[in-house]
Design a protein around this nucleic acid. Sequence first.
DNA 1: GTCTATATCATGATAGAC
DNA 2: GTCTATCATGATATAGAC
Lengths: 225, 225
Amino acid sequence: MSLRAVKPPHETRTRILDAAEELFMQHGFEGTSMRLLTTRAEVNLAAVNYHFGSKDALIEAVFRRRLDPMNAARIAALEKLETEAPGKPLAPETIIRAFVGESLRMIEDAKGGGRNFIRLLGRTYTEPAKAIRALIGQMYAPTMERYKAALERALPQMPREELVWRMHFMFGTLSYTLAATDAVQLIAGCKPEDRHDARLLEDRLTAFLAAGLGAPLKTAVRKAA
Amino acid sequence: MSLRAVKPPHETRTRILDAAEELFMQHGFEGTSMRLLTTRAEVNLAAVNYHFGSKDALIEAVFRRRLDPMNAARIAALEKLETEAPGKPLAPETIIRAFVGESLRMIEDAKGGGRNFIRLLGRTYTEPAKAIRALIGQMYAPTMERYKAALERALPQMPREELVWRMHFMFGTLSYTLAATDAVQLIAGCKPEDRHDARLLEDRLTAFLAAGLGAPLKTAVRKAA
DNA sequence: GTCTATATCATGATAGAC
DNA sequence: GTCTATCATGATATAGAC
């Protein structure tokens, strides 16, 4: 056992990742300079290039650190539900809650930086840079396929195309809500302690999304004139 | 009548605004340099500073050009509906359709640049720069107040706090959908001609949002432990 | 692994001729 | 109003001492 257990092996890496998470969320990628970032992390300016190679590689590392475990947890949550009720299709609301819950539990992790990451993630879904969009899409693909299959089993009567659109809407609601959890006070006054209560938000979001997903289908399909 | 009607009076201004709309949407504000912008607009590098004063002032002008008329149209649409049915509260779905419709009609305006602006707007809602967020929020405030009042009349039994959250969710769904209308193909294949059919999208969005807004209220209000 | 110093380049903005 | 030339600044990245 090493005698110098005081200093963690990758402390510098971690400090950089934490600072990047916070600053990217606040100022965006292009808006965050390496000077500001390394100053905030209290590491040397050259440390980012030494540990990650480039700014772009740092961005990727920031997402991988949180997104890979989060998506694994999402898939595990879904598989646990399906194992508990073998054969039977799950209720749509149950599926939605499993997906939403993993994001929202991270919001409660203010100290560990989880909240910073969740807000960063929310705003990155609409990021224009193609490389970043492609990166995120790739990390999400297996999870999305898995949940799509579950929803198809839960709603066999819904046209596949309509389901895809509604999943798109649901994803948008979630990511916007995550990105702008503090912006809600712009719309109206709202008790701050409620804003950060992830359980309440989970209930509200799940109810909204489940109702939207189950909206009545028009019997007459409109055709272009 | 002037003899030189060939060259519009503010052609340079317009060319700059159009190029800015497109490039800001593609690369963000910080990611768009004045050099790229003026090259794309085929104007001189110094023209932006001459006509707008600074890059920040240009950003503001880009939003004002479209947002002021769009919000005026939204308020006019709501007032028209209320005039047609005096005294009676409007159906929630009718109110939603009025709000959503004004955005989506702009999507069909591909040639005039309306689509570029709508996608820019969608991605700007999650923009981290505070100055831009404040600018947009300020331009939107009167419209939001107006629609909130209409929804309160339409849904008198809904707790005000719940309504605020659901409006937040609806706004998020709309803005994400506008920002990522091409990203839907990442989730699943989708006929391109449908993607740009604003009428179909308006129907789909309105049905989803109206159902979410009208989601059943939990009888037992959860209290924090 | 960490640091200082610096190379190299792109940025927003402006001065001043036309 | 438009152009060229340029300034001052800040960016990422790296070389090389420690």
